[in-house]
Design a protein around this nucleic acid. Sequence first.
DNA 1: GTCTATAAAGAGATAGAC
DNA 2: GTCTATCTCTTTATAGAC
Lengths: 196, 196
Amino acid sequence: MRSVPAQIAIKLHQALPLIAEQGLEQTKIDEIADTTGVPKATLYYYFSGKEEILAFLFEDMLTAIADEAKVAMEIEGTSADRLTAVVGVQIRRLVENRDLSAALVGDLGRVTRSSALVESLQAAFYSPIESLLIEGAADGSLRDTGNPMLGSMAVIGPVIISVLMTAIVPPDADEPDDDVAGDLIAIILSGLLPRG
Amino acid sequence: MRSVPAQIAIKLHQALPLIAEQGLEQTKIDEIADTTGVPKATLYYYFSGKEEILAFLFEDMLTAIADEAKVAMEIEGTSADRLTAVVGVQIRRLVENRDLSAALVGDLGRVTRSSALVESLQAAFYSPIESLLIEGAADGSLRDTGNPMLGSMAVIGPVIISVLMTAIVPPDADEPDDDVAGDLIAIILSGLLPRG
DNA sequence: GTCTATAAAGAGATAGAC
DNA sequence: GTCTATCTCTTTATAGAC
């Protein structure tokens, strides 16, 4: 894959609503060319096929999330605060890239078959959270669940699924979007049992 | 779709490792015929195509989960107990059908494009949990998060993601499987903050 | 880098006999 | 219900000029 000019990278995003809606399988490369205005021959010049196009866009977003998460992991406060910040970053970016996220979550199988993408997913979602859980258990600001992996799943799972839901629901829902991230992390932190 | 003989339904499961591994898109209907021993002509006799074959298997499992969940929702104890039971059912069935679950989670986009499957998913996962959260908030055995939908996501998300993980990891991992369901629901119930 | 045209192969789906 | 054979169509991907 040759280095992709920014000009083209931007245009590629225009194909995402299509891909999100009907899946990559049903999206013909001619449609991508038509929708984005990038000639098919040019697409093949830069990419080996449509899988690589989508993977490129995934990588783009995941790298951005990973970078931002790294920053969020350094803020002042308790581990819980940092965890809240990281989850906020993740959700915000996912929601901002609604269609790309829908394509990502809707085609997790494809993603998990690419080791490069799996690594990017880990760097963006799993690793930051696992680190913070371990850190928090050590300094006492988070409960020690005894299983950082399961704990991480308990955080990432809701994030992914809630994004999937918002991504599925047609965009007409111009609900104020409230503070999904905040509400979600509050539930995750406090749990579902009544507090004593 | 004609009513599928049990004989054939059973054989179809033999194609699942293949589908789980390479995705339905990459799985040729000839492969399904070869692997299951069901002649291709017979497959077309009962199904309109490979999508319908997979959807049939999904429905099968989801219906079983929904039925069992309905039972679990009636057991004695607190709402939290019932929630634990329901999640236990869900995880157990998913893990038992490892490859089918991998196919399901790996191709959520396809699933969400079928309204029948979306309804089955809701009946198996979302509805039971949402009911219990509402019930628990009312009788005080669960915290009132003010948003049953978000609360449900906080439960279902970890379930789905943890199953995805175990489904991705090669089966060589004959780890005792411990009590994933129990550990997971404990974390979800108690939250990640230290208890006072 | 982009165009037009085309190869060419794959795979889904069916026909029609048994 | 199952078999063999085949059709047909789509879609990827490339060739070669500009």
